[in-house]
Each structure stands twice: as structure tokens, then as C-alpha cells.
Design a protein around this nucleic acid. Structure first.
Lengths: 343, 343
DNA sequence: CTGTTAGCGCATTCAA
DNA sequence: TTGAATGCGCTAACAG
């Protein structure tokens, strides 16, 4: 027995339309009736039924957000940025994870679309954009975040992964470390591809030949980083440095170095990508490429709302944010570890 | 101009009611018409409008999930557990974060309720349950997760925080470490309170007097752990061990110990609460109390669905899961650090 | 400034 | 087994 707008109309002695107008702050309503109606609303504990409203207006004030996983700090920091911005603008957020599986991703999109989300923010999984063709043809605005899709133009918010990587690797080279290993992920993912590209560019910039033997591709997860670091460490001619393409691979690599005791034997100059809450505690990396993850999310939210509100029309735009580069002079190293304990 | 159920009825030469029945797998529909209608649906690319359906059925197949923050691994691992279970059962998840602010929390609840969520899973912020009185009186099922609220009975999924802490601290005491410091959070949060209780119990169990000077309360965040660890380290008579009440405080404490170089001077026997992805890499703790975070989420999802479907009625139930205790024999320590580099 | 009218797209009585 | 009629709660013309 929920109380409806019509009930309010009745007990206020006005029409339903008037109540509706009060609810939506229609300017051409007299102060008197507005007060009266608001009073009845307050007394009665009436609450709008957003579903009914949506059926009529064809807008749900809801944005869908789909990420490969929920329990990853980068994705969820982006999500937090999105949510903050959306809530500030009166929007809801429907969330789902694709498990890096295009089929699940499609299913999520389908379900959210059925629920009439006003727009969709997507951190896509690997592959090209063909699976999104139908969505693109529908009228539902879409913003791609973090990763781009081959052969698919859409609004997007990304960082300059190639440039961030290139600069970091170059920095190492300028310090005289020319043999730098690479621990990355499948190039079916644009960020993985671009980070690899930046790594290659740095070599070209410095006229250094790239040794394929120390270039390893895995899958952005901890186990992968662990395994690839082990491979790298097993080489007869070890690398002087290593670029590790994301936070979880860095965790895995670090775990290997610590568990194996390798860290006490060889002083790798490590570059890691992503500055997360645990980064200051790991302290194995000399250089960290950071991303403004929260801003990425906020930017995506603003972008989608621009479309939803019709403030922005026309061809897709891409917002490219820059990366940061943080040097850790306090990183562990063979030398510092030998020296410090004496202190 | 989206195509509707009525359109399908027309092109199929049947009534809207029939199409509706086909859509909901009504058993008393002839195989022939069912096939025919399904064919038209497929050809036309028709898709149900869930909003209209919800207005009619008063169910949205959507569960709201509210956590203090999105970008924290524990909360999001719970969220992942919830989402997996919900999606398997055909439900959506609306998500929001309260920022540990009861006012924002209330606002989120209000907004989700207006959108007719079928149920609400809440990791509440500090305080008592009075703010939820209205929600409790409404017909919307609620499941509390992780934290309980004083003076408020509701379905809940928690772990035995006191027991987990008690056992871990006891373990340290049995190894002869009797002076154990405490780094915890505000006792306005039930988990913080219970972990403190477990710490106190361990002392009582072993007949050890508790020294208030080494018991510190902060706020579950990194900065707090950092600051409290510094206070502890500054004591003239240092503790032999420290219990640190959650992952982020542990990160902060670890950061302090490393930055200050204190770790090279004093070998704290550390217990930390929560096993997260970075835990194996930090390696400062000798003992870790783990929680089945994903299972907590899955359990909460099952619990709320039981209510939503009316399979479960009657008084609130509490599902209490156990904690794990992991020993890290490979943890750093002053001795290991001095010895290893020689290798 | 306010009321009347007419649906939004679907599920569900009640008849047939 | 199927159809016709009705309304969920709200907004948006169009009048007045």
C-alpha cells in the first residue's frame, strides 16, 4: 500500500499534474500551492517511484559501469571516480564485471541495456570492437575507459601508455642501464600493446638493440608476473633492469624475487606501472609510472553525462591524460641492504 | 522508435497477452504459437523493456550494494562475491559508497529505495542502527555485511573477529611474546571493537596484564597505521609484538618501519588482519588472520535472495564465518636480513 | 498558474 | 489455449 502521487494530489486538493510539477521544481507554480503540497508530501512520507517516472521519461538516471574485475585497485579507483561524479550529478551506477571474457561482457551490456541505462562506461576486455557494433548503433551513449578497441571509434578516456613507458625506460637508459627486460601482457589489450610500444621506442631513441630473449608476455596477473620474473632471473646473462607492465605483475615479480632470495644476489633496476596503496611498501622499484586513476573515472563520468544530456553531440572524442613518473631513491638494492643493517 | 511487445503481437497475429506469456515461459501456451512468436521476436530484434515490466511486477531484479569505499580490496572482494552470485541468479547490482559518512549512507539508501531495489546489502559505516529504522520498517529486505550495528537486529554475514584476533595474539604469547601492542580503529565500528575484544581476551586467557600505553586507536587507514606505528616505535620500552587490525593500517605501519629504518633495529612480531594481494610481498608479519571475503559476499547474496524470493521468512539470521590463521616463517626479521645478504 | 487527457510497455485478471 | 480490458505511477501536451 505505497502512497502515490495521486494520493498526494487528493489530500492536497490539487491535480496530479500539479504535484508532479512541484516534484520537478517547475518554476510556474505558485509559492502557496508549492508549500502546501510539499507539506502534505512531508507529512505523508511519500516517495517518488523512479520506475514509473522512468517509464514515462525514458530516462533512468542510471549509468552502467563494466570492468573486467571488481577486486582490482585500479579498476575500482576508476569506479570511485565515476561514482563520485555521477552521484554529485544525481545519477546512479549499475556495476558488473566481465571477467575479461567478451561473452560475459556482451551479456552484461545486453542486460544493462534492457534496464534502460542512460549510458555505459566500459573498461573492455581483449579483442576488437566488432562485438560492440550493435550497441554502437543503438542510441545508448558509450565511453570506453583505459583500453581502446581496434577498429572501433567511440568516446574514450585513456592515458598515454606508450609515452609513459617510453620516458621511464629512457630514464633507466640514461643512467647507463641499457639491458632492460620487459614483463608485459597480451597485446590483444591496448594498454599492454602501448606499453610494449613505448618500451620499443625507448630502445630506438637510444639506438639500443632490443633482445627478444628478455621480453616476456603474460596476462597482467600476479602469477604471471611471478613466472615471468623467474624466467628472466634464470637467464645466463641477466638484465640490468626490468619494466613491469602493471601492479599485479609487479606484485608477482616482487614475490618471486623475495621468495627466491634473488633480490640478495642481483640488483635489478625495476620500473613498475601503476602507483597503488601497497606501492610505497614494496620498495623494489626504482621508478614508478603512475596514472591518475580517479581522474580517469571522473572524466569518463563527465563525458558520458555530456552525451546523456545532449550537451555534447558530434563525433567521438578521446580524452588522453598524462602519466606521472616517480623516482624512489629509497628503493631496496643489494647495496643498501648490506649497508643498512649495520646502522 | 523501439519495437514493443505490442508490435510483436501484431506481426505475429496474436494478442499482447500471448506474447507476454511466451516471454515468461508460461506452460499453457501451444508449442506452435510459441515457436511462431519466438521467431518474430528473433527476426525483429525485439528486447524486453525491464522498466515497464518492473512497474507492473513491482520487482526490479536489482539488489543495492553499499560499501564505505569502492577502492578497497576487502570491500570489493566482497562485492565480487555478491556480483557473481547475483548474476548467476539473474540479478543486477546497483553500487554506491558512503565514504564512512552516515548521512551519505542514508542518502544512498533513500535513492536506491526509490529505484525499487528488491533488496539491500550494506556494509554500514560507524554508529548505531537508529538511522536504519525507517528502512527496516519498509518491506525492503536488508543484509548487513562485515559490520554489525548496535541495537539493530537484521540479517547479517560476518566473521568471528574476536575469535580470530584472540587466537592469533594467543599464538604469539605462546611463543613467549607477552608484550604485544595494538593498532586498531574506532570502536564505533563493530569489527574494530571485536578485534580489540579478542586482543583483551588473549591477555586474560594468559593472565597477562594489558599495558594501555601500547594500545592505539586510529581509523583503519594507511596514514593512521603509519602514525600509530611511529608512536609505538617511539616508546622507551618497546613492544615485542604488534597486532594491526586491518590491511591498510598494516600497509601504513610497514611503510613507517621501512622508511624509518626501524625494521633494522627492532624485530617486531607482527600480526596483521586481512590477507590481500600485496600481503605475500610485504612479509613483515609473522602471522596473518585471513577472512573469506569472497564467500562473505556470496553468502550475503544468497541470504538476500532468499528473502526476496520469499523462500525465507521469520526472524533475522546471522551467518558467522570463521577466520584463518597463516604463519609466515619467511617473514623478514633483523636476523634474517643480516644473514641473507652474505649468500 | 492549474486541470484534463492520454499514454509509457508490460502483466494480469477475467472471459471465452 | 488465447484475447480483451485494465492499470502499475508518473509526465507531458494541450487547454483554460
Amino acid at each position: 500500500m505505497t502512497i502515490t502521487l495521486k494520493d498526494i494530489a487528493k489530500i492536497s486538493g490539487v491535480s496530479a499534474a500539479t504535484v508532479s510539477r512541484v516534484l520537478s521544481d517547475d518554476p510556474r507554480i505558485s509559492g502557496a500551492t508549492r508549500e502546501k503540497v510539499l507539506a502534505r508530501i512531508r507529512e505523508s512520507g511519500y516517495r517518488v517511484n523512479d520506475i514509473a517516472r522512468s517509464l514515462k521519461t525514458r530516462r533512468t538516471n542510471t549509468i552502467g559501469f563494466i570492468a573486467p574485475l571488481l577486486a582490482e585497485e585500479f579498476f575500482m579507483t576508476v569506479a570511485q571516480g565515476v561514482e563520485d561524479e555521477l552521484r554529485a550529478q544525481g545519477f546512479h551506477m549499475l556495476i558488473a564485471s566481465s571477467k575479461e571474457d567478451p561473452r560475459i561482457e556482451c551479456e552484461c551490456i545486453e542486460l544493462m541495456t534492457r534496464r534502460w541505462v542512460d549510458g555505459l562506461i566500459l573498461i573492455p576486455c581483449a579483442g576488437d570492437g566488432s562485438r560492440l557494433a550493435r550497441l554502437a548503433k543503438s542510441r545508448v551513449p558509450l565511453v570506453l575507459v583505459d583500453r581502446l578497441l581496434k577498429g572501433f571509434r567511440a568516446d574514450a578516456v585513456v592515458v598515454d601508455n606508450a609515452q609513459g613507458t617510453r620516458r621511464a625506460v629512457a630514464r633507466l637508459m640514461e643512467r647507463g642501464i641499457t639491458r632492460v627486460g620487459f614483463i608485459g601482457a597480451s597485446r590483444k589489450i591496448s594498454t599492454a600493446r602501448d606499453r610494449y610500444r613505448g618500451y620499443v621506442q625507448a630502445h630506438r631513441d637510444h639506438g639500443i638493440a632490443l633482445d627478444p630473449a628478455i621480453v616476456k608476455f603474460g596476462d597482467f596477473h600476479q602469477e604471471s608476473g611471478y613466472g615471468l620474473m623467474r624466467e628472466l632471473a634464470a637467464m645466463k646473462r641477466p638484465a640490468g633492469g626490468v619494466f613491469i607492465a602493471n601492479h599485479y605483475m609487479y606484485l608477482g615479480a616482487a614475490q618471486y624475487l623475495l621468495e627466491s632470495g634473488n633480490i640478495y644476489r642481483h640488483d635489478y633496476a625495476i620500473i613498475n606501472f601503476d602507483e597503488m596503496s601497497a606501492t610505497p611498501v614494496i620498495r623494489l622499484a626504482k621508478l614508478t609510472v603512475s596514472q591518475p586513476s580517479r581522474e580517469i573515472g571522473a572524466g569518463a563520468a563527465r563525458m558520458i553525462l555530456g552525451r546523456v544530456r545532449g550537451e555534447r553531440t558530434g563525433p567521438p572524442e578521446t580524452l588522453t591524460l598524462g602519466t606521472g613518473l616517480v623516482a624512489h631513491d629509497d628503493a631496496y638494492s643489494l647495496n643498501s641492504m648490506i649497508n643498512k643493517p649495520g646502522a
